[in-house]
Write a protein that binds this DNA or RNA. Structure first.
Lengths: 217, 217
DNA sequence: CCTGATCTACCCGCAATCCGGTAGTCAATA
DNA sequence: TATTGACTACCGGATTGCGGGTAGATCAGG
């Protein structure tokens, strides 16, 4: 008999965290060895014990889910990461996979979907839940340079977008990042052009979908 | 021995729904008799069988949680409703309680908090989770007209706010509503003043929290 | 009848956004 | 080496946002 799959769960909602733990512990081949409600707790948990798979909520406020994935894999390269999210934004899934994640499941899916993902990544494969899988795999299989249809946001732009979505003006963002206001405005325009969004309201929603900011705040 | 508490859960996230079910079914005195992922399913479930307590997620897209509560209680007056939410907006809690709910718990709280709420409302009392309880009860106990601290938004303002959060300018909102642009701007400023919000990003998040608009769009 | 709330509409003025350019530096890379 | 992309910074101009007023119309409640 092979040993049970050692898992760690990370989500900023305590209730979801413990409810999910209860769901997974009904599975005989899964052992939840810890839960974390922020990035620091998560890194401490995986640093202290052997862990096979980590489920990370993309929408954590304290630490960006993608950043958390990167730091986690820098610490323990052989851990498998599955991203959990309330939304399914194509670009964001691609970023997460680029960061090293092996799976992606939306919270709208049933628990069985997550179990499928766990067992799939545990044997070294990649699992994407059906609704996002189609669009993403088509993008991955397509090695051709899809210039027009792949709006990639840079790290700096992501940083500016986050501050815009938090309600700051370009001037204050410039102060915060030690930049000229004109530079921030360039980033702002480039973000809007790349994403084809044309108002702060749309930028804000995109930032929330991407996990760059939370609804409360 | 008293019979078990018959519960129904409603949330648009399948995963949370089933995870929460697993958590509650570990309790010997609780029986989850059904789960619903939208308002229609919920009404059908409580119409078909005896139910003691219903947990409703406030942030359901298809049906407003407050509206669902109202219709639920119109159908079965003796059912106890507990509101679940990812956020804790004072005004929404008040609206929910006005609609007839007996409890309110945020998803950030642990599962034990929900169990406390369930047992409390089951014996006919009202339960509010600690972080919102303080502000809300102070508002309820205060019969005096707290003009400055009770930001009630009018129907027209809500309409304008929704269109702002959808990314429209005052000019286009004016066209849509057959108003002068100056009038829309007045509504806009009154909304901001009442809610103490000072950017479109903050307005957008508030609108999402209020269920006026959805994140995807 | 009067008061208060709401909706309507306008005034001014400054700040900020939004869209179009140009252009230098730097690092990676083809 | 040459090119590409990212980051930086500025210019100009049109539009919009934002905060402060004033004010008339309507309607409900005391």
């Amino acid at each position: 008999m092979s040993p049970r799959i050692r898992m760690v769960l990370a989500d900023d909602h305590q209730m979801f965290l413990h409810a999910l733990r209860a769901l997974l512990e009904k599975e005989p081949d899964i052992e939840v060895v810890g839960v974390a409600s922020n990035g620091e707790e998560l890194l401490a948990l995986v640093g202290a014990q052997p862990v096979d798979i980590v489920c990370i909520d993309i929408g954590m406020p304290a630490m960006n889910g993608i950043e958390a994935t990167r730091r986690l894999l820098a610490l323990r390269r052989n851990i498998k990461v599955i991203g959990l999210s309330a939304f399914s934004d194509r670009q964001f899934v691609l970023d997460l996979l680029n960061a090293g994640a092996r799976g992606y499941v939306t919270k709208a899916e049933a628990g069985e979907e997550l179990l499928r993902a766990i067992h799939t990544v545990h044997v070294g494969k990649t699992y994407l839940c059906p609704d996002v899988g189609a669009t993403v795999t088509s993008a991955l299989l397509d090695n051709a340079p899809r210039d027009t249809s792949s709006p990639r946001i840079t790290a700096r732009e992501r940083q500016v977008l986050q501050l815009i979505a938090e309600g700051h003006t370009s001037g204050r963002i410039a102060e915060r990042l030690h930049l000229a206001a004109s530079t921030v405005e360039v980033h702002r325009r480039n973000i809007m052009r790349k994403l084809d969004l044309h108002s702060v309201a749309e930028l804000t929603k995109y930032a929330i979908r991407s996990g760059l900011t939370t609804i409360s705040g």
